[in-house]
């Protein structure tokens, strides 16, 4: 054993510097997308009680669905549940192209996932928590939202659709 500083082969030293630079570049690209372009991951919302979130008349998830806040701007309260059947409420949402929709999704029983195909909306739905992301739909078409976390036997049939009209 030696008390001298560690010996590093010049090739290996260069390689270490090079890989560090590559990782820094990746980290920069990620930061630019996150803080510059607003492609962010969900942040904590308020917590709810999963036992009553679907039934309490004061809870928007007792009446899940789309709300037009102002022209072209929507709030979508979506409830995911496995009981009595595996489904999202509502099963279908229709918005005009160019709309920006804020999704507030929660679960009244087990954990679910929520992924809207061909968009950046993809997050966990955890009982007791509210997941929120805002997505702008520019291109008309049908965008399925599917469950991406195992939630029991019906996990594979759990989905809904956003119809973006021209």
């Amino acid at each position: 054993m030696s008390a001298q500083p560690m010996h590093i082969h010049p090739y290996e030293r260069n390689w270490m510097v090079f890989s560090a630079v590559m990782l820094v570049l990746f980290a920069t690209a990620v930061s630019v997308a996150a803080f510059g372009m607003g492609i962010q991951v969900p942040a904590p919302e308020q917590r709810v009680d999963p036992r009553i979130v679907a039934t309490d008349p004061n809870s928007p998830w007792s009446n899940p669905g789309l709300r037009e806040v102002s022209p072209g701007k929507y709030d979508a309260y979506i409830l995911a549940h496995a009981i009595p059947v595996w489904e999202y409420l509502p099963k279908e949402i229709t918005v005009p192209a160019g709309s920006s929709v804020s999704f507030y999704v929660t679960s009244s029983d087990v954990q679910h996932g929520f992924k809207i195909q061909d968009t950046n909306a993809n997050f966990m739905v955890i009982p007791g928590q509210v997941s929120k992301l805002t997505i702008k739909f520019n291109k008309p078409g049908t965008y399925n939202y599917i469950c991406t976390e195992y939630c029991g036997s019906g996990h594979g049939i759990m989905y809904g659709a956003i119809i973006v009209t021209p």
């Binding site: 990746f26 990620v30 997308a33 996150a34 492609i39 962010q40 991951v41 996932g113 992924k115 950046n120 909306a121 993809n122 997050f123 966990m124 991406t148 976390e149």
Partner: peptide, 12 residues
């Protein structure tokens, strides 16, 4: 592991 890039891949 790349933070928001995970939005494309999470649970797929």
């Amino acid at each position: 592991a790349s933070y928001n890039v995970n939005l494309v891949l999470h649970n797929t």
